[in-house]
């Protein structure tokens, strides 16, 4: 049996799966990135090395990376496939749910909508200028209210009269919420208002003019929050499906893509115990000032990212 690894290094969390030839997940892990993707990947790989049997570790044929740190981690661990998260999420979702037409994805710092027809992505959109209405917003506001992120759904269910919170900008939403709290609204109503604001923000940004067709799948970290799921159901007036592995679908997708692009030689899943130094520099080759990322393995220059001509990367 051949095995394939997919790693999704997001801004908030790092997800990894190991799949077999039939796309079954044989091992999975979800850990916090804590703004240090290299450390997180190291930890993730070590967990896999302990968790998986020798038979699996000896028969890995491809490793894929996706998420916002895909290029950096891909270069360090020698990934065979590096692909953007939109394609990865679409593939991951389609493998679990063949008849999906709309994917709603809300992660830590971005949110997106992906429309699928006949197994191919036909349209997508990603938030452009700010991170309003994403996981980072929810978790920081929950912290302000002294509520654990995991408890948001309980409060949502308890609320009978959700407050109205501005749905556009995180800063406005925050001052709105503080005001509503100061005039004595209940905590559960505030939290329900927050969940509604996330949904409102999402529909304002992405649904405009798009046809939301069945079946709608909701994924990304925020989909684990049933409060937001319920708010989406009400707003879109549609059944919303949340896969039990909804937080892993990006990693699953990239593992499947890596599988299709795999060659016949085995790869080793490991991260050398070396200090990796990253230095970001503005290239001085010309006045365009490309941002070039230099990756040092110990003292040795391993690779560069963002280099666009022969002048840079030195």
């Amino acid at each position: 049996m051949k095995y394939f690894v997919g790693i999704d290094i997001g801004s908030i969390s790092t997800k990894g799966v190991v799949i077999d030839e039939n796309n079954n997940i044989v091992a999975s892990e979800y850990i916090w990135t804590n703004a240090s993707p290299i450390e997180a990947s190291k930890k993730l790989i070590n967990i896999f090395r302990e968790k998986c049997s020798k038979e699996i570790l000896d028969n890995i044929y491809a490793i894929g990376t996706t998420g916002s740190a895909r290029k950096l981690i891909g270069k360090i661990i020698g990934a065979t496939t590096i692909k953007n998260e939109i394609t990865a999420h679409a593939v991951g979702t389609m493998s679990r749910c063949k008849d999906v037409s709309t994917i709603i994805e809300i992660g830590g710092q971005d949110s997106k909508i992906i429309l699928i027809k006949n197994g191919v992505v036909i349209d997508y959109a990603m938030n452009t200028l700010c991170a309003a209405g994403t996981g980072a917003f929810l978790s920081s506001q929950a912290k302000r209210l002294g509520v654990e992120v995991e408890d948001i759904e309980k409060y949502y269910m308890m609320s009978k009269n959700p407050v109205k919170i501005a749905a556009r900008c995180t800063v406005f939403a925050e001052s709105d919420m503080i005001h509503k709290a100061q005039i004595g609204n209940k905590k559960e109503d505030l939290i329900a208002g927050l969940c509604n604001a996330v949904v409102e923000n999402y529909t304002n940004n992405f649904v405009r003019g798009r046809n939301i067709e069945d079946k709608v799948v909701f994924q990304g970290g925020v989909s684990k929050n049933r409060g937001v799921v319920e708010a989406f159901k009400k707003k879109l007036n549609k059944e919303i499906y949340v896969d039990e592995a909804s937080h892993l679908l990006g990693a699953l997708g990239i593992a499947i893509i890596a599988k299709t692009e795999a060659r016949d030689n085995k790869v080793e899943l490991q991260l050398k115990d070396v200090e990796y130094n990253i230095r970001e520099n503005e290239c001085k080759g010309c006045s365009n000032g490309c941002e070039v990322l230099y990756i040092f393995e110990g003292e040795k220059l391993l690779d560069t990212i963002g280099n666009r001509c022969e002048k840079g990367g030195k």
């Binding site: 796309n23 593939v91 389609m94 493998s95 063949k98 197994g119 191919v120 992505v121 036909i122 349209d123 997508y124 997708g253 499947i256 893509i257 299709t260």
Partner: peptide, 8 residues
């Protein structure tokens, strides 16, 4: 999206 390749 333009390539429209199917993986699954």
């Amino acid at each position: 999206m333009i390539e429209g390749r199917r993986y699954v």
